[in-house]
Each structure stands twice: as C-alpha cells, then as structure tokens.
Amino acid sequence: MNAAPDQFARVLLESADISRAVTRIAHELLESNKGADDLVLLGIPTRGVPLARRLAARLAEVEGTNVPTGSLDVTMYRDDLRRHPTRTLLPTELPPGGIDDKVVVLVDDVLYSGRTIRAALDALGDLGRPRAVRLAVLVDRGHRELPIRADHVGKNLPTSSAERVGVQLSELDGRDAVVITGGQG
C-alpha cells in the first residue's frame, strides 16, 4: 500500500532504518534456518518483490551463497475480488528449483489484516509442497483479522485503523521510506 504524501504524513523509517531492518531479518533467517540451505524467497507484489531481492542480496553477503528468489502474485486468491474486481495481474515467478521440500519465506512490505498472506498460502498450495513456510515483513502494523503472525519483522508499528502505512522503495518510488498518513490531523 503506497501512501500518497499529504499534510499529515509522517516518515517513520528512512533508508538507513529500512536497510538495518533487512539486515536484521537476514540474520534471523539464517539463524532460524541454520544457514541458507533450502531457503527460497518469494516476494509478494508489489513491494515485497524488491524487498525479497534485497534480502537475498544481504543473505549472499553474509552467507556467501545465492538464495533463490521469485515472486508470488496472489490476486486471484484474494477473498475481496468482489469488492475490488479490477486488479492488475502480476507475474508469479518461481526459481528454477521450485518450492517442493524447500523452506519458503514469503516476503511482504506491510502485514495488516493477514488476508494477503492467507491468499499467498492458498497460491503456494497450487504451486508445490514446501517443507515449511515462513513470513518476513518490513512492517507489522497490527489489526489482524486472521490468525497470522510474521516470523520475522523489521519494525512493529502500532497504528489506528484510520491511518495508512505506505512503504516506498527506491526501485519503484525513487526513495526508501515508511510513511504514515491519516488518523490524527
């Protein structure tokens, strides 16, 4: 979710903060997995894809091995298509080795209701059978509607439901920032 700048926008994370969060998540992943063996990173479009690539680059720096990375479009698995019927389909790209018997790490920018991740789990079921699935998010803002929890979180940002959290990444937006808008005025 990309927040448009307005007079009440507050920058909560800047480029250096995002970089530190990605580094921390990379180290946590390596620690919990006991290395990079059998890891596959799947970014959820739109901003989860560049985050997954950044995470893979950081894992390569630390571990000295390339972690397969791809993207997982969940559009057709969403439960809100009736409310928002026009969505652009983005490619699902699995790494050459697939996901069977791998530890798949879903990577997204913001965890909110949990519905996107539920859709991602449904999509994964059609693509293969991972040994385990983990979730890494840059921002966890709370307000879950489903029993879904991230395994690796860059930053917990408690918000009101009237606020919007927008992640901006240089690959798509020309700068790195996490911005909150709305709520109080």
Rank of each mutant, 00 (worst) to 15 (best):
R83E: 14
S161D: 10
L127A: 04
R118Q: 12
N156V: 14
A123H: 08
L121H: 10
R164A: 13
D100Y: 10
N156M: 13
E93A: 10
E63N: 06
G97M: 15
S71Q: 05
D73S: 11
T92W: 01
P96D: 12
D79A: 13
I117C: 05
E61N: 07
V104H: 13
Y112G: 12
D126I: 00
D108Q: 06
D79T: 10
V178R: 04
G70M: 04
S71H: 08
G154Y: 00
A177F: 14
R115Q: 12
Y77T: 00
V153E: 06
T75C: 04
Q168E: 15
P130G: 04
E63D: 15
A162W: 00
V110Y: 02
G174E: 11
L90N: 09
S170D: 15
A177K: 09
V137S: 10
A57F: 02
G154M: 07
T75K: 11
V104W: 14
R134E: 03
D176N: 14
H84C: 04
A136E: 11
V107M: 06
T65L: 09
E63H: 08
R141T: 06
R115V: 04
R149E: 14
A150N: 07
L89R: 13
L127V: 00
H84T: 14
L59P: 03
G174A: 10
V165M: 08
R129H: 12
R149I: 09
E63R: 06
G70E: 11
L169Q: 06
T159F: 02
R87A: 15
E145C: 05
Y77M: 11
M76I: 02
R78A: 05
H84D: 10
V167D: 06
T88W: 00
V179W: 13
D140V: 07
E63T: 00
L81F: 05
V62I: 15
L106M: 06
S161W: 03
S113E: 12
P147Y: 00
K102C: 08
D176Q: 10
G128T: 02
V165P: 01
R164H: 11
S71D: 02
E63L: 00
D100T: 05
S160K: 03
L94V: 05
P95M: 01
D100V: 01
N66M: 14
L59F: 04
D126T: 02
V62Y: 07
V74H: 09
T69R: 12
K155D: 04
L90F: 00
E163Q: 15
D108L: 09
L55F: 05
